[in-house]
Each structure stands twice: as C-alpha cells, then as structure tokens.
Nucleic acid binder design. Structure first.
Length: 304
DNA sequence: TATCCAAGGTAAGTT
DNA sequence: AACTTACCTTGGATA
C-alpha cells in the first residue's frame, strides 16, 4: 500500500473533495461509508475511492485503486500503486488555476452565489468511455440512481483488483461491456437505456469510433461527433465534453439549466439547443462557461 | 395501500 | 427541418 498527502490549500483556488465528487459530474467514485449523496460527516474525513484502468501513461498493467480523504486543507491518499498523485491530479483537475477561472467569470448574482457556496469544487477528467456510459444512463434519472447504475456495471462487468484485503472493481472497458446483451443490462435496471449502452459499447469495442477522438476537435464539431453514439444527443455529448474531454466551454442544457435560463436569463432563450447553447455560453463567460454551469447546477439542485 | 409523477433525454415516426 | 410520442424504473408525493 502506497500512501501520501498534499496540502491542497496551496492550490490556486483551493479544493473541496466532497463537492467535487458528489455534485453529479462523475459517477465513478464511491464513498467508503456507502452513503454517497447523503449528509457528509460534519467533522470531515469522509473517504472516497476510485478504480482507475491500466494506463500506458502510468505504466501500470492492472487497475489502480485510489482512496482519498480530505482533512481541512490536507488531501490524503492510499493507493495500490506508487506515484498516485499524478493520476489524482489528472482525474480531479488539480492542475486548474481555479482562482483565475473564477476571476474570469462575469459578474452575475446567481453565479457568484453558487461560487461562494461550493468554493473549491473542481471539474473532473473522467475516462472517456466511462463518462459516455454514465451520461447515456443519466437520461430521465436522478443522480443517486445514475450512480447506482455505474456501480452495478462495474460489479457485474468490471475487472477486479485486490487492495487492502478487499476486492475492488474497475468500470468495465468497452470490450468487457460489449459482452453484455440488452437483456443483461435491463436486469441491472438500466431500462430503455440498456440497448443504448449495449450498442455504444459495441461501437467502441469494434473500433468504429471512440469518444476520446472528440478531445482534439473544435467544440461544436466535437459535440456533433459524439452524437454518433447511440443514446447520445447534444445534452449528453456536452456532459462528456465537459466532464471528460476538457471542453470547458460546454454548457449541458439539462432541466436545471433550462429552468435557470427561464428564470434568470430569459434573453438567452432561443428556439433550439444550438442557439440557446451559444447564448448561455456567452453569458457564462465563454472559455470557462462549463465551470459556471456546474456551480449553478449544483446550487439549484441543492437549493432550488 | 394505491396511484401518480418526474427524474441531468434520445430515437423514431409524422407532418 | 420542426414537432410528437414512447420509453424502463423507482422513490417520493398525494389521495
């Protein structure tokens, strides 16, 4: 077992682990106490874990288990492989200059209120395929159940890895998930999303397309590219662009943001997704509009 | 206890 | 190209 820690208070803009992992942008972490999305420990010190897939970048050949906790300004970890910090930094965007991003955000009462409430919340860099499946599953679903679905998929199809006397499972690769039938996935309560996940996993496993290919495209072309996958419209595509592929200007137009537009930014209303998206991205400051979106989403979901 | 409703939408069928 | 409608499942609200 490899352990380490880092004073995240020294990061530009700070860090809030609980807000980052439970704000509905990533469904690939589990709270150690089994009570994801419930009231966090008032004294702090809750732990979350994630199983990262093997990566040539870190030269590992089996999944890497990472367990994290935050005590005040100290981020502490235990991992199954050495040098976990590089992976943690990538996954949780600890390399973002959050202070500069917030400073570049336009003056706006709703955005400022949300920024104050969740100071230290960072976007994530989820692995592309897992992010894609997560948000295909998100259609007409509550955050807690989206998370349950991803846990079920990992339990049923993910590669297992032993760590600290327990068995953990990674999110399944496309190849492993492609082995599932629609009926198999319906048994995991995916409902009508089951054939979407099945067919998308096959597309990726067959090499027909990979969500990571959208990383280097221009934003709107990247969004269009992702809609090739089954079950992926513009909203889901925007989520993958923002929470996995680093297109920080993406503003997914979900029910919460649509309500926010109605009530707070009615002049951004257009008669289609494309144009409304452009208008609200501009209102949210362009380059980092997705950061504002995520804070506002979180504020409305918890306080609206 | 039973029924209704909405949840981070998308695909397929109609005009 | 715009507009409707069906779609699984479930927890919480309402009667």
């Amino acid at each position: 077992m490899n352990v380490g820690n880092r004073p995240v208070g020294a990061l530009d803009g700070g860090f809030d682990l609980q807000a980052t992992l439970e704000c509905g942008q990533s469904y690939l972490w589990r709270r150690a106490d089994g009570h994801m999305y419930e009231e966090p420990n008032a004294a702090g010190g809750d732990a979350w874990y994630h199983v990262a897939l093997p990566s040539t970048a870190t030269e590992t050949d089996e999944p890497e288990v990472i367990r994290l906790r935050q005590v005040d300004e100290l981020l502490e970890w235990e991992a199954s492989t050495p040098n976990a910090y590089a992976r943690i930094e990538e996954l949780l965007r600890l390399d973002d200059d959050l202070e500069a991003i917030l400073a570049a955000t336009p003056d706006d009462p709703l955005i400022e209120r949300a920024y104050e409430a969740y100071r230290g919340l960072r976007l994530v860099r989820d692995p592309p395929f897992a992010s894609l499946v997560s948000f295909i599953c998100s259609a007409q679903m509550r955050v807690g159940r989206i998370h349950e679905m991803q846990v079920s998929l990992a339990e049923r199809y993910g590669e297992s890895v032993a760590f600290d006397g327990e068995t953990y499972r990674a999110f399944p690769t496309a190849e492993r998930l492609a082995a599932a039938s629609e009926a198999d996935l319906r048994e995991l309560s995916l409902g009508y999303r089951a054939p979407y996940v099945e067919r998308t996993a096959e597309m990726v496993a067959d090499g027909e397309a990979h969500p990571g290919e959208a990383r280097d495209l221009a934003y709107e072309a990247a969004r269009e590219s992702l809609t090739r996958f089954v079950g992926v419209g513009r909203k889901v595509a925007d989520c993958v662009l923002l929470f996995s592929l680093g297109h920080l200007q993406a503003v997914p137009l979900d029910t919460w943001i649509r309500t926010a537009i109605e009530e707070h930014y009615p002049d951004c209303e257009r008669d289609n997704y494309e144009e409304t998206s452009r208008a609200i991205r501009e209102r949210f400051g362009g380059e980092y509009a997705g950061y504002a979106q995520t804070y506002v989403f979180n504020w409305l979901r918890n306080n609206g």
